[in-house]
Write a protein that binds this DNA or RNA. Structure first.
Lengths: 354, 354
DNA sequence: GCCTGGCACTCCGCAGGCCCGACTGCTAAG
DNA sequence: CTTAGCAGTCGGGCCTGCGGAGTGCCAGGC
């Protein structure tokens, strides 16, 4: 493979057209098809020569002799990076996205879920969303709520939203005023701190000062621990059945491999979050495309993924992704993912406390 | 079809054996196979006669002339109701269930999710879980929490757990004491009530008495509304890729139809919850099996579903289900579903406030 | 020197035809 | 009522042949 092959204007146009045609038809494209359907100004024989050179350059491959050409990873890459026209959202898509978020839930995990449904419906592919990861965030408030003599609720609020709520059951009666006093003491001591800096020894000492029972002390410890713990990365996926429509997944082995990845949240998370960690995504909200082997997973060698980050106030950065066959309409999907990510971020920031 | 056909002992045994063999091999079973693999004491010709009668009785069908027999819905039904040996959990399964719940989450939606993963893994089929539906439940406590002069959090606790937490942002500064007074007033007025009986006019009158702003009044209304609303039925499914292993789903059309049902939560919910409503399940915690057309969905004509309810304190009754081909190992799946449902109920009741 | 028309060649995919094997139902005898 | 035997049926696997799509290459023309 000769990576240095310059794409002159005609080669570029031919490559772009092959990719475009293959994306639309799912059939290997031959020189005659090309001359017939597109106005190239030269004969099919010339196209054949050019295509042979594009194949030598690694941009196209032939499934077998006497078949048309199909883009390689490098061919798709060139298409996405240099040849393709950027697309904008159609007014219909814009409207559907807007309508969706207008009546969307306020609950983060529900929103994530609904967004994957929306995006899989619009894109006709598999959509994935990761909720913003809470990393370090500030302590804001703790409240121990007296429900009955033997039961209480602890609510810890952080800059990342409601960090944790936990119910506790006591073995002896507790007093509502004691809980209030404890709440106040904790609040005045920890106000303005970063959650990581709230140590257990400090909790212990406050509890000791106020002479609360070890049972309550342990409950406070537990509530803070839950609020501090980053928790399972929240992730949702929808639209797996869309993949069945694609001819490349009619092979059951490939399909199963992909479904396995989708159902194993861990793998799926790694696949997408890769992107989160690797580049300084926080500063770059533009969509990324990874094609075939760039995904570094054999099962996904025939897939591509479009990812786009979204920002949710100070709760951090989440990810939206579309997974489909390499033969996907990149322009449209990039526009859809970006538009949805923007609306998602806006919606979350509208709904959530600042 | 003659429903009145009595199954004498030999017919019963033959039917049971046909079903058993078909479940294991997925191949239509013929009279010779039967005499060879099972000790029937009669020749294949006799079996042929018997099978012909079983077919006339509607228990067996022939995919085509010169093929073996396959059970019909009625054949499976007889097998499940009368012929099959009940099974108990293997010690290995018991252990895996126990281990799973030992380190399970405390969060209801996470538990539901993890349970479907467990059950799909153990059963090799698609597992579904619905969270207990909250119907009417009692008001327990409301707390308006002052976070900053311009922001507050409202927490409404009901007998169904933490009903709702909502963050609010005010346009003018509010006083912490005002919020406390309001919380106290609401608590003393509504204590012991059923949520449905907490009316907006009453909320309004309390707010008016205490002279709180209309903004805060609206916030309280909204918090109660969220707590009262039953919310989306929580539902989870896992293990769709297991279905790919079954030969009956190698047909892509069927597979797609099923995946569509699984991804559409509404349909899936109706499918399972049907069972919840129809019989007085609350008093009957035993597993139910629905086979083929009994599911009243053409797409699921070749599927069966095992459902088993589980009880979660006073939050109501949830459902666990296994969906797979009609040709499923009923005995084992029933045992698995029951065992898992029991452990799930126990776990939830251990973890949650009473 | 590049483009083009023509030609020989390759190979996939499909349709038809064939045979084999797995069953069955029936009959006649035990 | 059971059984052995037999004729009949039908699906599926396998081979074969053919048409079509597409290529590479060559020789001639601008």
């Amino acid at each position: 493979m000769n990576d240095k092959l310059e794409l002159d204007k005609r080669k570029a146009f031919i490559l772009a057209t092959v990719v475009y045609e293959y994306i639309n038809t799912a059939e290997p494209v031959g020189s005659v098809t090309l001359t017939q359907k597109y106005n190239l100004g030269v004969s099919s024989a010339t196209i054949r020569n050019e295509m042979a050179e594009l194949e030598a350059g690694g941009y196209l491959v032939q499934p077998h002799t006497s078949a048309g050409r199909v883009p390689s990873d490098a061919g798709y890459r060139a298409y996405v990076d240099r040849l393709m026209q950027p697309e904008t959202l159609t007014s219909d898509d814009t409207r559907r996205i807007r309508d969706q978020f207008r009546e969307a839930s306020r609950e983060l995990s529900d929103v994530i879920d609904q967004t994957t449904r929306l995006l899989s419906g619009l894109s006709g592919n598999l959509a994935i969303a990761i909720a913003p990861s809470r990393d370090t965030h500030a302590f804001k408030h703790v409240q121990l709520i007296w429900l009955s003599p033997r039961t209480s609720l602890a609510v810890v609020v952080t800059s990342g939203g409601v960090g944790a709520q936990r119910a506790f059951e006591w073995s002896t009666d507790v007093d509502a005023d004691d809980l209030t006093r404890l709440s106040n003491a904790l609040n005045s001591r920890f106000g303005g701190r970063v959650m990581e800096d709230v140590g257990e020894t400090e909790i212990d000492s406050i509890c000791a000062e106020l002479k609360v029972s070890t049972e309550i002390r342990d409950a406070v410890r537990a509530a803070f621990a839950t609020a501090r713990r980053p928790g399972e990365p929240e992730i949702a996926a929808a639209g797996a059945q869309n993949l069945l429509d694609q001819p490349e997944f009619h092979d059951l082995r490939k399909l199963r491999a992909i479904l396995r990845i989708v159902e194993e949240q861990r793998t799926l998370y790694d696949l997408i979050a890769d992107e989160l960690a690797s580049d300084g995504v926080g500063t770059d909200p533009s969509p990324h495309v990874r094609i075939g082997h760039e995904l570094r997973a054999d099962e996904l060698a025939e897939c591509s993924v479009v990812t786009v980050p979204y920002r949710f106030g100070d709760r951090g950065v989440g990810m939206l992704a579309i997974l489909g066959p390499r033969r996907m309409p990149y322009g449209r999907l990039i526009a859809l993912a970006s538009g949805t990510a923007r609306s998602l971020g806006d919606h979350l920031n509208d709904v959530e406390i600042r």
